[in-house]
Design a protein around this nucleic acid. Structure first.
Lengths: 348, 348
DNA sequence: TTGTAGGCGTTATCAT
DNA sequence: ATGATAACGCCTACAA
């Protein structure tokens, strides 16, 4: 029995029961290539064979193996998503949008966190590339546009939350500047002149833009900028609380606060109440982002709405377009002020 | 030129520059299998060759291709994670923990949402399996233990947030019952006798457990259960707010509320304030979960701490153990009451 | 201990 | 329009 019979390796328990393309071909009486062509629309196939194959697929419950596809040089049907912190109440929404939008096209997102630092972000992207993702979506992040461009040179990619740069990466961003202007204008309209600004860390592009919007509004109203009213913080609740303390210590008067994100606004409101300052009676507060929680703070927070979820679906849609060789097109909703109860007319 | 020369397919732009195992072998002067063996520790290799290969790997910057590994029947170095809603402030933390813990071992999580419904959950798992994940972590969910077991029969899997069932899936869960008892006992200790319960949807196992804990505490204190004090809700802020309305409409007196999660507590506090009831002066409120936000509500929320992040790392660690053929072992921190300012002694 | 020769499930190339 | 056949990059018997 010097068997030269190439005995098929016994299927591991992991793979048994899995229908392959080859089996479909057998069942339909065609070649594997034909099945593949039908699956991918790579070439014209006679109606008869197509019907037979479709039926075989249904009967066998065949599902193409993305891993094999990936190896064969085809697509892995996965797109990498570089987020910064997966548990962020802010980016979480975006991830959700991305997931839903990709799913309709049969793609799966692969999330990795950059943790707001260059090293991790680079590692994240490399990990994604080694997994042969078909495309990469980058949410904000720290890498320079130049390095990003270099890393992602060979992969369709869309960058969210950065100013479109001339380097070729497709990118789009919410209009943070206009949103911040809206928020500040609202406070000005309510009669406030001494408006403090709680800033996010300026390594975030959007933090800078939101500052610009604040300055725009003051300038338009002819209100001089008082640097002592501007507090550098970090987009967290704790940071917002601390910022209020610092502001109070400076002993500059103010009747309103524009917090450049909602999370800091939460902390700020608690900080104010700790000093026996009531919102909005003593101090008006306006946030930015309109997180879910902002409807339930006490008082509910007036803020600038941006649909992060929608940003996610748009990013995914853009990626899908890229993947089909089309030119992506995004139209994000304009910033919108949501008036609730944390801001009111200046008491004088 | 009837070339029979098997011309190598020109590397696509996507793959050029990628170093393969074969190149490493060439460079180190050994066979590919030897390289593979070194990589996987599959067999004993001479020190000399090992050194040569290690160096070649470093010089070439070789990184094994997970896709090829997956196809070859090896591992894909990815583990599927079935979550319910990726943007959930609750599960988001767990995902974060999973990601971090897996990363240290070179694994990548593949998140898919079950959306709290059987159909999506089933699809999610099948999608993961077709992608040849090495293991699956399931966070809560709706599928029966039986079906789950069937679907995951051939894959290492760990289930979080379900009572360990005798069906063999490795599962563990936070001690929700003890936690809820702790919360209720605290209110009782503060002198409250009329304690309302806001329940999550009872399709969640933990919602049932938390109810049990509430009942346990009442029983232990000899306080009769008043069904009118129990309101069925859904774990959301909006639900908590609504629940308070319903409670008030029933016109049964109560001096405290145990909300079986923090999100409902947020809504409840807003609902109370809408009726001019102050927390904690008129009504004490205790939550469950200790979400980040709970430190910043007004007043800060007394709640039961459970480290969801830690739950995530534990789940991942268990998976890693399973993947190495070891017996997983989890030790979750016991529930702990975090006293803040939303509950106080009954005013009488 | 090490190398050789498939094979994993698809896609892509080249014939027919 | 359709079918062989060779990759894709790695793992794993089997042989040496």
């Amino acid at each position: 029995m010097s068997s030269k019979l190439p005995v098929k390796k016994a299927p591991s328990s992991r793979t048994e029961g899995v229908v392959t393309l080859e089996q479909v071909a057998l069942r339909a009486g065609v070649s594997p290539s034909t099945v593949s062509r039908i699956l991918n629309g790579t070439a014209i196939v006679s109606e008869a064979k197509k019907a037979a194959v479709d039926e075989a697929i249904r009967e066998l419950g065949f599902r193409p193996n993305p891993v094999a596809r990936g190896l064969a040089g085809g697509r892995t049907m996965s797109v990498g998503v570089v987020t910064q912190r997966i548990a962020s109440p802010f980016y979480g929404e975006a991830l959700s949008g991305i997931e839903v939008a990709l799913e309709t096209a049969g793609y799966v997102p692969l999330f990795v966190s950059g943790n707001w630092n260059e090293v991790d972000e680079r590692k994240a992207i490399e990990s994604l590339l080694s997994r042969r993702v078909d495309g990469v979506i980058v949410l904000a992040g720290r890498l320079s546009n130049q390095e990003l461009k270099a890393l992602l040179a060979n992969v369709p990619s869309v960058v969210v939350g950065r100013q479109p740069s001339p380097n070729g990466l497709f990118s789009f961003s919410f209009d943070n500047r206009a949103g911040a202007k809206l928020a500040t204008e609202h406070l000005i309209d309510l009669g406030h002149r001494r408006i403090a600004l709680l800033q996010g860390d300026l390594i975030h592009e959007d933090a800078i833009e939101r500052q610009s919007g604040y300055l725009d509004a003051l300038a338009a109203a002819g209100i001089p900028v008082d640097p002592r009213l501007i507090v550098q913080s970090d987009y967290t609740e704790a940071g917002g609380m601390l910022a209020v303390s610092r502001l109070l210590e400076r002993e500059v008067g103010f009747s309103a606060i524009f917090s450049s994100n909602d999370q800091m606004a939460y902390g700020a409101m608690l900080g104010l109440s700790r000093r026996n300052l009531r919102v909005p009676d003593d101090v008006s507060v306006v946030g930015f982002d309109d997180l879910t929680m902002s409807r339930y703070t006490m008082p509910p927070l007036t803020t600038v709405r941006q649909s992060v979820y929608e940003t996610g679906t748009q990013a995914a849609a853009a990626m899908l377009a890229l993947l089909q060789g089309a030119v992506p097109e995004v139209n994000l909703a304009a910033p919108e002020l949501v008036m609730r109860e944390s801001a009111r007319r200046h008491a004088r």
